[in-house]
Structures are given as C-alpha cells and as structure tokens.
C-alpha cells in the first residue's frame, strides 16, 4: 500500500512544490520504495520508549534582553529579487490562501 498520485500531489501542494504529470510516476516509485523500506519500523514495540528529540541532554540557554545592531535596510534586502520602498515585493495574494494564526 503506497502513496497514490492524489496523495503525492497533496503533499507537493503542502510543500509548495509543483510536480508535472511526467515526473509523477518516477517520484511515486521512489517515494513508495523508501516508505516500504521504512515500514519495517512498524514491527518494533515502542510503547514505552521515549523519543530522542535532542541528542544531547541539555537545557535551554537564555540570552539577555539586549538590543544588538540590526542590518541596514540595504544589507537586509540586497539579495532580494524584488524590493520596493525598502520592502520585499511579492505578487498578488489570492485571498483563500489566508495567513497564519497571527497574521
């Protein structure tokens, strides 16, 4: 049971990648081979095993609340493909895209 084309296109959409119909079969084959290989993990009994999210056991170091110099607007935007009035320019945002929770 692997990923269908439909599911792959959904994932591609989440990742903001465009897939052509020509490359879809190859990608489906590669992804499903890997997913098939990793499915061996499902056989393990991991109920009591904690995950390793950080490999070193350490606590959060904290930074003092001190203002450090920012970049100049020129430096901050020098690599940007499109800049207007010191800001990054983006094309029309189609409304249904919405923003984040805090937008």
């Amino acid at each position: 049971m692997g990923l269908s084309d439909q599911e792959i296109l959904h994932v591609a959409r989440l990742a903001r990648l465009r897939l052509t119909t020509a490359e879809l079969p190859g990608i489906r084959r590669d992804l499903n081979r890997v997913l098939d290989y990793v499915s061996q993990l499902q056989a393990l009994d991991l109920a009591d095993i904690p995950p390793t999210m950080h490999v070193v056991n350490m606590e959060m170091p904290l930074r003092d609340d001190v203002v450090a110099p920012s970049l100049s607007v020129e430096e901050a935007t020098k690599n940007a493909p499109q800049v207007e009035a010191g800001m990054f320019k983006v094309p029309r945002i189609v409304e249904s895209e919405g923003g984040g929770d805090d937008g």
């Binding site: 990608i27 992804l31 094309p91 189609v94």
Partner: peptide, 28 residues
Amino acid sequence: RDLVTLYEATRDEGFGPEVKRRILLGTH
C-alpha cells in the same frame, strides 16, 4: 502573477530532483 504560483515555480526550478524527493518524503 500570484504568490502560490511564484512559490511553486521558484521551488520547482530552484531545487534538484533529490532535494525535491526528500522534501516530499519529509513533508509526508
């Protein structure tokens, strides 16, 4: 002409096949 197309076209042309493969796998 619109943002989503810009994202997808940029990432489609900007990343090579192995990177895209791993992004898809990881996103999934």
